[in-house]
């Protein structure tokens, strides 16, 4: 039992160590613009634009549920316009980045790990090296950059839609007026809320794509290995998103509150 626990911990640490090593290598390869440049827009479309529907769908339902939940919770002396405050703060600072990040961890992380894993087990990566291409610059850098750039775009759209859904739910289901909802949404709104959500989502994009690439390039043993690496990528990405969420809260929110 002790041996199994030790092996699991060692493998997890190895994965994160390899991810760090790959990140450093990607940083060096990012200078090779000619290699990764042509692939960037394709990856940005695959990881970002094609992920917009799932991000928007999540935000749509999240906004409605939050408005109803706030209305249910705020009774008695608590004014109803605070429904707008809760929807604005929660959607922009937490739910849009984290829920969208988790959804994209499944969609994007598994996609990258499976794609690179297949290339690895079929020795296409070795072939790229043989042809004189830097596999990190060709495969990893455009994906990481696309993730860092496009995750905030998807999350930004989710914020917009989530707030709008909360607004619509307040009007349609809670008999609130537009001015009431806007009063609450504006009461404690700060530009920092948007910055915080977008920066956090960029870090999620970096972690998800990096872990997807790391697990994909580590894949061994055919289809089973590819499946295993995709699973590992999703699990590690989800954990990393929650860890980063806590990290930003402690570092940025706590520092700002102090």
């Amino acid at each position: 039992m002790f041996e199994s626990i030790g092996r699991v911990v060692r493998e997890a640490l190895e994965a994160f160590g390899q991810a760090g090593s790959l990140a450093a290598e990607a940083g060096r390869s990012a200078r090779d613009l000619k290699t990764w440049g042509p692939n960037f827009s394709q990856q940005a479309r695959a990881l970002g634009v094609n992920s917009l529907p799932i991000g928007i769908l999540i935000a749509l339902f999240t906004g409605v549920v939050l408005a109803l939940l706030a209305s249910y919770s705020f009774t008695g002396a608590v004014p109803r316009y605070l429904v707008g405050t809760l929807v604005q703060k929660t959607v922009m600072m937490e739910l849009a980045p984290v829920l969208t990040g988790l959804a994209l961890a499944g969609r994007v992380g598994a996609n990258i790990a499976a794609e690179l894993g297949t290339m690895t087990v079929t020795e296409q990566v070795d072939a790229l090296e043989t042809l004189g291409y830097d596999p990190v610059a060709y495969l990893v850098v455009p994906r990481i950059l696309a993730g860092v750039l496009m995750f905030p775009v998807v999350v930004g759209a989710a914020m917009f839609v989530g707030l709008g859904a909360g607004w619509a739910a307040s009007l349609g289901l809670l008999d609130m007026t537009t001015s009431e909802f806007l009063k609450g949404a504006r009461l404690f709104f700060d530009g920092f809320d948007v910055r915080y959500g977008l920066v956090k989502s960029a870090s999620f994009g970096f972690a998800v794509t990096l872990l997807g690439c790391t697990n994909g390039l580590r894949a061994k043993g055919g289809a089973q290995g590819v499946g295993s690496s995709a699973t590992q990528a999703v699990v590690q990405s989800a954990v990393m998103i929650l860890v980063l969420d806590a990290f930003w809260a402690v570092v940025w929110l706590l520092g700002r509150a102090a």
Binding site: S41, Q42, A44, R45, G48, V49, L52, Q88, L149, M150, V153, G156, A157, M159, F160, L163, A185, R186, F189, G191, V194, L198
Partner: peptide, 25 residues
């Protein structure tokens, strides 16, 4: 791909900026 990605980024960013300014009155 370039056109779609660029358009998406611009539209979303404009939406975010507009929403921020709207909420900040």
């Amino acid at each position: 791909n370039d056109w779609i990605v660029g358009t998406t980024i611009i539209v979303v960013m404009v939406g975010i900026v507009f929403s921020t300014l709207f909420l900040q009155q």
